[in-house]
Write a protein that binds this DNA or RNA. Sequence first.
DNA 1: CATGCTCGTGTCGACGTCGACATGTCAACA
DNA 2: TGTTGACATGTCGACGTCGACACGAGCATG
Lengths: 199, 199
Amino acid sequence: MSPQDHYGDAMSLPHALLGLLAVAPRSGYELTKVFAGEFGRYAWQAGHTSIYPELARLADQGLVEVTHEGARGSRTYAVTDAGRAALRTWLLTPREHGKVRDERVLRMFLLSALDPADARTILERIAATTAREAAQLRRVRAEAGPVRPGPEGFGQLAAEFGLRQYDAVHGWAVWAMEQLAAADAEAAAERDPAPAAPR
Amino acid sequence: MSPQDHYGDAMSLPHALLGLLAVAPRSGYELTKVFAGEFGRYAWQAGHTSIYPELARLADQGLVEVTHEGARGSRTYAVTDAGRAALRTWLLTPREHGKVRDERVLRMFLLSALDPADARTILERIAATTAREAAQLRRVRAEAGPVRPGPEGFGQLAAEFGLRQYDAVHGWAVWAMEQLAAADAEAAAERDPAPAAPR
DNA sequence: CATGCTCGTGTCGACGTCGACATGTCAACA
DNA sequence: TGTTGACATGTCGACGTCGACACGAGCATG
């Protein structure tokens, strides 16, 4: 009815908070750090200026509640049953096209607007970065045990997702460089059809 | 200086437009359709209400120009040399963490907040969807030739990226379901340590 | 006990985006 | 010739987010 409770239409921040709090009760400050970490890197980013007001709104609606007040005025929030139900509904409702706005992917799409030399530079950087990140995630995974339900499982599912994502992007970058080189060679052959070694 | 020309800080829509126009001159209307398609699905989405004002701003700054005025008041824009340079600078400048806000990924991260049965439902849907989309992209790719520089290359690079992305997500979803099943079986074994067939 | 750091929460203005609404053109079809 | 529908561009208010700024509490160091 009122303009601020049309949840389900869009708006993912409240659901992100609900999900995070469903895994473990946290304070706004701790949530801020989560959003600044891996979670914000792959899924959804937000600053404390968005988080605190949103927590207050969720509390108003009875989806979360303050379970503990600690030092320095800190408040620990936890999801209520209503909040858990709202999150479940949202996750179980198939969304045609979720909102996507990924600057990294945008840069990849725009590559073809550059000349091959510049494109190559960027692809090399992407390949190097993804290889490094994937290697680090592999190290993290090796030090952990099998997946279990609960808070730890959360991190493992996410880590595995990130790893596969990095590998995919890495493979793509390498492939794209090969395509670029092949197109280059072909263009050179058209300019000088001699089958002998060039130059 | 003035508040509206701090490009390079953030803001990806102008660069997306620059990149699209660098591939081929287009009208605002055509750009709108591009953003509504694959491009908006993976990289960056925008409606015509954002695109038209932004084109005007870019024209003011001399980064794009109107090269043709057609029927129904349509204006075809093309990128200028200055625009091409601005795009190149932006693409070649490594960005620590590009802005990411992907609702699909968010949903995957939040999976662990649900009970295994619900998680399984969602994972199955993800696996089915990604398999279907990947198959379709594979069909598209088979009908196209090798990658070439220019406007066609753009689509091919993007299609290949999407394909690998889908495959990666599909693989992850299948893996996650296996992990879930394994954790389930283990929990069952702990409740009833009999090695014989259950029930 | 003064200094400085992290912890922890909050406001406010500027900005980008989105949905709703508005307006006019051109082509096809009945 | 009237009407439907795609083409094509635009404004405006509401809303979410972000950077800058602000403030206080605890804690360690010298």
